[in-house]
Simulated scan of single mutants.
Amino acid sequence: MARPTIVRPTPAEVAAAADRLLPDLIAPGLHVLFCGINPGLYSAATGWHFARPGNRFWPALHRGGFTPRQFDPAEQTELLDHGLGITNLAARASARADELTRDELVRGGRELVDKVERYRPRWVAVLGVTAYRVAFDRRTARLGRQPESLGGAALWVLPNPSGLNAHFTVDGLAAAFAELRAEVAQTGS
């Protein structure tokens, strides 16, 4: 299968993507549903999750063992073939996740539970511990497996892969993704 042609949005197209919605990449019975905080403007302009150059989701996903090679954001639909999907806590695009309100994150948490109950993934991986704490009122949550489930799915919190998250290198993110991958494999996927 030929890889899609990558067309980079212009700065004007990126700016015009404010508040645009990015559809979920989801299907019933996924192994893992990755849940970002919200789409960035670049992602909303392209229509691809984690599309901004410098976002470390795609390298971490591959190096963590979830995909056989590093996919380009334009190839995101191939994740479904690997039992993986992507959604967000908040649907609207913004330049930075800290532009979201607490109410948006809490509402997004409720909507995520509804999606999980509808689509029944085995695991949900929330990408960003601070957003997870706010959305689900889990003030002391840490990265890794959570003691509670989410809508019937096992729950894991990963670091935010945004290039703005300087606390984690690509190697650190890949290691965190690999921990989840090992747990998913151990439990049967």
Score class of each variant (00 low, 15 high):
P4T: 06
T5A: 13
I6F: 07
V7N: 14
V7S: 13
P9K: 13
P11R: 09
D19G: 07
L22K: 11
I26F: 07
P28S: 12
P28M: 09
H31T: 08
V32T: 08
F34T: 00
C35F: 02
G36R: 01
N38F: 06
H49K: 04
F50K: 01
A51M: 05
P59C: 03
A60I: 01
L61S: 00
H62G: 02
G65A: 08
R69F: 10
D72S: 08
P73A: 09
P73E: 06
A74F: 05
E75D: 05
E75K: 01
Q76P: 01
T77H: 13
E78L: 14
L80T: 03
D81V: 08
G83N: 03
G83V: 01
L84R: 02
G85F: 06
L89R: 05
A90L: 11
A90F: 11
A91H: 15
S94Y: 09
E99M: 09
L100T: 02
L100H: 09
R102W: 12
D103S: 15
E104L: 11
L105E: 11
R110G: 15
V113W: 08
K115M: 11
K115A: 10
V116N: 11
V116W: 13
P121G: 02
P121C: 03
W123I: 00
A125Y: 00
V129S: 07
A131H: 07
R138L: 05
A141I: 09
R142L: 10
P147K: 04
P159M: 08
N160P: 01
N160C: 08
N160D: 15
L164Q: 14
L173A: 02
A175H: 11
A176Q: 14
A178P: 04
S189R: 12
S189V: 13
